[in-house]
């Protein structure tokens, strides 16, 4: 099939970008979205033109490297998958697709569809961990964990840090990302001692990075490739409010 692409091209963080149109023919339904871009990039490279830059690595939906907007939807039209898992059979011959990078103040565009998501790392560095030195861990089965809590913690921990939640949020909020980590650790007995401090520190860093607030639109949950629930946002709100009240004592 033939696909027309409208791709955001921007040569450097400082440069002004614009959309460029490409016709890609010979697209097979079995190709992944990124393989279709590979084919286009090979053509561009053969002509000595700069290929379209985009982050990607595992190409199986787990590393969280890939991600851009396809026709105004983060990670494209299919639910609960990433751009790298999106296959061209989701589109039809003659379709026109607009590919645009994640847009947020805290995610500056580096080149084309590639953005800088280091703000996420700094949020984790602010408190997304249990302070346990190597070697100081107690026997693993010494602390039983309710299966329900363990399962729920896992669901939160499934976050791949791709940034789609920020990209889709009308306020460019990082609440789903932050709350997933706060909840994952907060739900486990291992994370309990630092629960208050973690919530306060991580939210403070999140705010400092310039992400927006949560209006409870739910866009983040809808595009999350791991289907992480906004219930975790409520849980983080609760944790933060409690922690702040407790800190007054």
């Amino acid at each position: 099939m033939k696909i027309t692409l409208n791709v955001w091209r921007q040569s450097s963080p400082e440069a002004a970008g614009s959309f460029v149109k490409y016709d890609v023919d010979g697209v097979s339904a079995d190709m992944s979205m990124l393989e279709m871009l590979d084919v286009l990039n090979d053509r561009l490279e053969s002509k000595g033109e700069a290929p379209i830059a985009f982050d990607h690595d595992c190409r199986e939906g787990i590393c969280g490297s890939c991600g851009f907007m396809i026709n105004g939807v983060a990670h494209g039209p299919e639910k609960e998958i990433t751009v790298c898992q999106t296959h061209m059979r989701s589109f039809k011959d003659g379709d026109e697709l607009t590919l645009e990078p994640w847009r947020a103040m805290a995610f500056p565009v580096m080149r084309d569809l590639m953005v800088d998501r280091s703000a996420f790392d700094r949020i984790i560095q602010a408190g997304g961990y249990v302070s346990v030195r190597t070697g100081s861990a107690p026997e693993a089965n010494a602390t039983p964990v309710m299966k329900e809590h363990a399962d729920m913690a896992f669901e939160a921990a499934a976050c791949i840090g791709c940034g789609a939640c920020v990209a889709a949020c009308p306020n460019a909020a990082a609440m789903l990302f932050t709350s997933a980590k706060v909840s994952h650790l907060g739900l486990l007995p291992q994370g309990e001692p630092e629960r208050d401090k973690r919530a306060i520190d991580m939210v403070a860093q999140m705010d400092k990075e310039g992400f927006g607030h949560c209006s409870n639109h739910g866009e983040c949950e809808a595009v999350c490739p791991k289907g992480i629930s906004v219930n975790f946002i409520a849980r983080m709100n609760r944790d933060l409010l409690k922690a702040t009240l407790r800190s007054s004592r």
């Binding site: 249990v130 190597t134 070697g135 861990a137 026997e139 602390t143 363990a150 921990a157 994952h184 291992q190």
Partner: peptide, 9 residues
């Protein structure tokens, strides 16, 4: 032991 203490679910 180490992983569980870190909160690996």
């Amino acid at each position: 032991d180490q992983a569980v203490a870190q909160g690996v679910p």
